[in-house]
């Protein structure tokens, strides 16, 4: 299947810092593509260029084969790329509904005025959360009262509801316990089955192996290669993340994509 989005030789410099130095990556419909790497490898920076937060210093972004340039996150969202950030993009003091619809509030016209249609907004929020397996007490509940996993789920539900074709998850499981991680992973599976391409960022190899269809490892701003499920062992991924000392040995198992 042809990729939904292709990133070719992306470079990103922050002044003297070279955060990304030629990263290539693609996502296909219905797959979960894991992006692995140690702290500071450039994972967050990379997906932020994919999401329109950063503009790449060099490199190409293709959407459905067409070159694209995002000016801001809105552009990327318009192209069907939704992101759930590591720092979550949820506002704890605001209600679940207000967070869910933030930036895209449904409005109802009353004469010349437009008000938020809270009845619709609350209903949809409750339904979508239910679908993801979470029973909210009330849609007016503050996001701050939800657990980490539930917050991830609100963010994922929001992205899917707004028609994401590519869903980027930046370390959704890093702060979660076993149960909540399992919940988030099964949410990812549900989303993937609906045909969305998922980019799952983690530095936990076990979480990646549990759900991933393909694996790409980033190290110091460069890709070390992409492997398919079943072509690579967890230990090998672990080694690559740690710095790729055993590159020669790994090249074989990666099928020469390094």
């Amino acid at each position: 299947m042809s990729p939904l989005i292709e990133m070719k030789n992306i470079e990103k410099h922050f002044g003297p810092v070279i955060a990304l130095n030629g990263v290539s990556f693609d996502v296909r419909p219905g797959e979960c593509h894991c992006l692995l790497g140690d702290n500071g490898a450039g994972k967050s920076t990379f997906i932020k260029t994919m999401a329109g937060v950063h503009k790449p210093t060099k490199g190409e972004i293709l959407i459905g084969g067409e070159p694209m340039s995002f000016q801001n996150p809105r552009d990327a969202m318009g192209a069907g790329i939704a992101t759930v950030y590591q720092d979550l993009a949820m506002i704890p003091l605001m209600s679940v509904t207000r967070n869910f619809w933030m930036g895209r509030e449904p409005v109802r016209k009353v004469g010349p005025f437009r008000f938020i249609d809270f009845r619709l907004a609350n209903q949809v929020t409750m339904d979508e959360m239910q679908r993801m397996g979470i029973n909210l007490r009330a849609p007016t509940q503050a996001v701050g009262t939800l657990s980490g996993g539930e917050r991830q789920t609100v963010a994922i539900a929001r992205a899917v509801y707004f028609g994401a074709k590519v869903l980027i998850l930046d370390e959704p499981t890093s702060a979660l316990g076993v149960r909540q991680t399992a919940n988030v992973l099964s949410t990812i599976d549900r989303v993937r089955k609906s045909g969305v391409g998922v980019v799952f960022i983690t530095h936990n190899v076990r979480h990646a192996m549990a759900i991933g269809d393909r694996f790409t490892v980033l190290n110091r701003g460069q890709t070390l290669g992409t492997a398919k499920r079943g072509e690579i062992k967890p230990e090998e991924l672990q080694d690559m993340m740690a710095g790729g000392q055993d590159m020669a040995e790994l090249e074989g198992s990666l099928g020469g994509t390094v």
């Binding site: 999401a51 937060v53 801001n72 996150p73 809105r74 969202m77 992101t83 950030y85 720092d87 979550l88 993009a89 949820m90 506002i91 704890p92 003091l93 605001m94 207000r98 933030m102 930036g103 895209r104």
Partner: peptide, 14 residues
Amino acid sequence: FASGGDAQAARYVG
């Protein structure tokens, strides 16, 4: 509310 609650989070969603 969003701008004051978390400007970055608000920017992310447009």
